[in-house]
Amino acid sequence: MTTATLTQFPHLTEFEFIDACSELAFRCSRSHKERHDWLSVEVLRRDSIPYLRITKQLTTPNSTSPDTIHIQSSSHEDVERSDIEISSTKGTLDHNTEDAEIEDEDSEILNRTLHTSERSCPIVEYDILLSPVYRVPVLYCSIKDPQFRFPPTMDSLYRYIIPPSFKPQAEQSGVMGGITITDHPVTNSPVFFIHPCQTAAVMEAVSDRKGDMAPFEYLMLWIGAICSCVGLRVPLEVARSMIPNE
């Protein structure tokens, strides 16, 4: 069982971080893969740096039809009512705009492309690492494509990674927006990343429970609050398994 409280909220210790990542990987391993869009979830470690890697298929504008099926989530309302609302699709960096609300409704229909040659398709790789500076999780993401069609550029970022509804929000902060390109801490290759310097403040703002939560709940809250703007959302089924007594 995971520890119930965080010792350094809004920051995470490495122990709590690994605990949270392992819990998410474990829960995903027990979930029904066909009901969500994550291809894999695993805890990795390289050069003594632990990290969580989540992959999903890249949905490009022209990959939505005709070989796409729509899976209508039947559990939407359950999740809405639960106290983990933030970890579902509602959480954003800050307040939802009207547009974002509408987009969110659409995204309840999970797109899943069914290609026979799934392996040659581009995938999005999300790596979650604990920042050694800010002591909060940081999201790095990149598009892996055998044909290298999606280089790590701002153009690829806004065309393929950031959902349209998040564009205005993403462009707001920093020199060139809150999401830019940096070297991955482990591979030292260029990847997209969400600037972590505001994360601790966001975590304090979205939680009224302070440190009174398990590391896994922190991670869910963090993904909901920070990662939707690059298309990473907790599968409803995994989120639902957080609801007590279910």
Binding site: F148, P151, T153, V175, M176, T180, I181, D183, S189, P190
Partner: peptide
Amino acid sequence: PTEQLIKLDAAGKH
């Protein structure tokens, strides 16, 4: 070498 180097931009914003 896009896999190894971040691409520069005209305005030097990166």
